[in-house]
Design a protein around this nucleic acid. Structure first.
Length: 424
RNA sequence: GGAGAGUUGGCUGAGUGGUCGAAAGCGCACGCCUGGAAAGUGUGUGUACGGCAACGUACCGAGGGUUCGAAUCCCUCACUCUCCGCCA
């Protein structure tokens, strides 16, 4: 949610900002609605004021034992008039709310123009691409050959885009998750948390998935309306919903592993082979809640924390700055980390690190008390994958394969694999 | 799942259908006192919207209703606590 004050004070700035995103915003429609809101709100408040003073007068007259009937007659019609005004006002406000909550965040000035992922800008590369003197297999062939990955079983148990991991491969995924949690909590200063995987609609509104992206979610129940989380970002960021954080407690840094559930609506035909794009996958998420002045640096730090995992695993990757057209709805600036997948001969997204500035905080009413002003002010929120465990598993499989189709265990994971060095 | 009790400001906690944005205490801020501190003492201390401001309006878990007037009465829902049942 953007600041309504910004709309009122500098509409041209908002229009220009949204244009960069290619977001269709109709300023006339907005201004007309806003003008009506103002008129009806003023009228409503005048009527309320009249009611309050009249009621007070009645109370005082009664206390003195005077006849209140003339006063009662005077306010006879006020009730209906007020009710009508209040109803109209709440309708206009609901309409404005729908409009406002459908508007994406404004982009940081450093975000490049562009329309889709082809216009993203490469910032840096890390690691040497592995050289193989045999024909490289992708994770599907590697996994199915030894019955470590079973897509048919996943389809039988549930449906398409579900998979079963067996034996040491399942363990390897668990090892990756443990390794990531340990690294972020003991080296990068994040507090480990465990959160609900089902969330309510308020939480999803807070982080921006609702109302606009309901189709991407799995709804788990009606009444109560619970949804499976698409990312741990949702429950973790909602820790600070409706909270005023003490300045001394900032920054808050959380790390959380969770399964993620995505309907992948609109992704038909994309990445159908393998476990790149599943309805259910494991991810370790890092989240920061910071003072506004710190969020730019925090974004760089948080991205570096995600990169650290790739470096420790010795997986080659590149860091991309997403262009205007590819940056997510709630984000003002996003770096994607793309890991090298030899089986695809391509870099593929494995982490997305975003600075939301106050966009989520406004929806969440997540604030801190600024000692300089003494007032509660919005915090800035950030998050990133640190990393997507399912895709990291793929990357390890493909980068650490040998001529026999065996998978070697990365050095840093050995303690988590009970001494196992190779999956064969 | 059954029965009961609750939900009030940063916290604890009073509250009558009218003058309650709400007593009191704690905490916090600023001052006095002090060599300094503690204690004591004085003043102040919610958020949002509109307005240059004075000020107005809304908010006592949420949403409805009754009423000229609702924190207070009625209804629905959510959550918390206690007891019973069931269960990892």
């Amino acid at each position: 949610m953007l600041d309504v004050q910004l709309f009122r004070n500098d509409l041209d700035f908002v229009i220009a900002g949204l244009k960069k995103r290619n977001f269709a915003f109709n300023p006339e429609n907005y201004s007309e609605l806003e003008a009506r809101r103002k008129a009806v709100q003023t009228k409503t408040q005048e009527l309320q004021s009249e009611r309050n003073s009249s009621s007070k007068a009645i109370g005082q007259a009664k206390a003195k034992g005077e006849d209140v009937q003339p006063l009662l007659d005077k306010v006879a019609n006020l009730g209906d008039e007020l009710k009508a005004a209040e109803t109209e006002l709440s309708e206009i406000q609901a309409e404005l709310d729908v409009l406002m909550s459908g508007i994406p965040n404004l982009l940081d000035v450093s975000v490049p123009e562009g329309k889709d992922e082809d216009d993203n800008v490469e910032i840096s590369r890390w690691g040497d691409l592995p050289k193989f003197d045999f024909e490289v297999k992708d994770h599907v062939d590697l996994g199915t050959a030894r019955n470590l990955l079973d897509f048919e079983l996943g389809a039988k148990i549930t449906g398409s885009r579900f998979v079963v991991l067996n034996g040491q491969l399942a363990r390897l995924q668990r090892a990756l998750i443990q390794f990531m949690l340990d690294t972020h909590s003991s080296e990068n200063g994040y507090q480990e948390t465990y959160v609900p995987y089902l969330v309510n609609a308020d939480s999803l509104r807070g982080t921006g998935q609702l109302p606009k992206f309901a189709a991407d979610l799995f709804k788990a129940s009606e009444n109560p309306d619970y949804y499976l989380i698409p990312t741990a970002e949702v429950p973790v960021t909602n820790i600070v919903r409706d909270v005023i954080v003490d300045a001394k407690d900032l920054p808050l840094k959380f790390v959380c592993h969770s399964p993620c559930f995505r309907s992948e609506a609109g992704a038909y035909g994309r990445d159908v082979r393998g476990m790149i794009r599943q309805h259910q996958f494991e991810k370790v998420e890092i989240v920061q809640i910071v003072k506004p002045e710190d969020s730019v640096q925090a974004h760089e730090d948080l991205t570096a924390h995600a990169e650290m995992i790739l470096q420790k695993l010795n997986l080659p990757y590149r860091k991309m700055l997403l262009c205007a057209g590819d940056t997510g709805f709630s984000s003002s600036k996003t770096y994607d980390l793309e890991v090298w997948l030899p089986g695809q001969n391509a870099y593929r997204e494995i982490s997305s690190c975003s600075n939301f500035r106050d966009f989520q905080a406004r929806r969440l009413q997540a604030r801190w008390r600024n000692p300089e002003t003494g007032k509660p002010e919005l915090v800035h929120t950030l998050n990133g994958s640190g990393l997507a465990a399912g895709r990291t598993l793929i990357a390890v499989m493909e980068n650490y394969q040998d001529a026999d189709g065996r998978i070697h265990i990365p050095e840093v994971l050995l303690p988590y694999m009970g001494g196992l060095k190779v999956i064969e």
